[in-house]
């Protein structure tokens, strides 16, 4: 699916140079479920952003589905991203002014899909994550778990091949957290590649492989036997 080769990311301000990622080499196969762990500030989110093409690397190669995308202009990245990658955030990042339905539809809005097809797919995915009865509600009327389910629905409604989840359970209680993890696992079982940043070892256990980062380096990679 993707391959990072000697990838580095350096942040510069006038006075300080911060190395967020230092010669990272990672390969993720199609259909994998990978957890990225590590202490705060180790570069997890930076890695995820680069993988998600929301940020670019300072040096090194990023081969995505056989194409080296390092150095691609934003518009091109944006195109690849919207075809292939879905996002789930810790703080849900739903638009407050849109209903549940509209928030999910947003992921299809920029794909030139006719309105009736969009509505169909949104309805289907809402059923799948069990939020259909809240379709007309505003995000502020939902619980955290429900909001994250909307976010998951939004991430998958476009049939994305890969989902990037940045601490998806960070703002949820354990019951809701587990619910979301089970949802991700189910998606993975259907063939979606999932890359997830998490602090929770228990939730990392849902993944087949865990990458541990420390100060911008990959320190260990643990492969779990198939669950």
């Amino acid at each position: 699916m993707l391959k990072l080769h000697n990838l580095s990311k350096v942040y510069r301000t006038d006075e300080v140079e911060t190395v967020a990622l230092d010669n990272v080499n990672i390969e993720i196969e199609s259909g994998e479920f990978v957890a990225i762990m590590g202490p705060s500030g180790c570069g997890k989110s930076t890695l995820l952003n680069i993988v998600g093409m929301l940020d670019s690397s300072s040096s090194g190669d990023y081969v995505f589905m056989g194409e080296n995308v390092a150095g691609y202009p934003e518009s091109k990245l944006s195109n690849i991203r919207k075809q292939n990658i879905g996002f789930i955030f810790q703080s849900f990042n739903l638009i407050d002014e849109l209903t549940v339905e509209e928030n999910i539809e947003l992921a299809l809005l920029y794909h030139n899909i006719p309105a009736n097809v969009r509505r169909e797919r949104v309805a289907k995915v809402m059923d799948k994550v069990g939020i259909a009865h809240r379709a007309k509600h505003m995000p502020s009327q939902l619980s955290g778990g429900q909001q994250q389910r909307v976010a998951v629905a939004r991430a998958v409604v476009g049939d994305q091949a890969m989902i990037l989840a940045d601490e998806p359970t960070g703002n949820l209680d354990s019951a809701h957290g587990q619910e979301v993890m089970e949802m991700l696992q189910a998606l993975n079982a259907e063939g979606t590649t999932i890359v997830m940043v998490t602090h929770s070892p228990a939730h990392a256990d849902y993944a087949r492989r865990t990458i541990n980062l420390f100060d911008g380096h990959v320190v260990t990679e643990n492969l779990r036997a198939a669950v």
Binding site: G52, L54, S75, S78, N79, R81, K82, F87, N93, L94, I95, D96, E97, L106, A107, L109, Y110, H111, R154
Partner: peptide, 16 residues
């Protein structure tokens, strides 16, 4: 800003 960020992540172009 936040809304615009979300829309961009969802694939909205600068023009959108």
């Amino acid at each position: 800003t936040k809304e615009i960020g979300i829309r961009k992540v969802m694939g909205a172009s600068v023009f959108d």
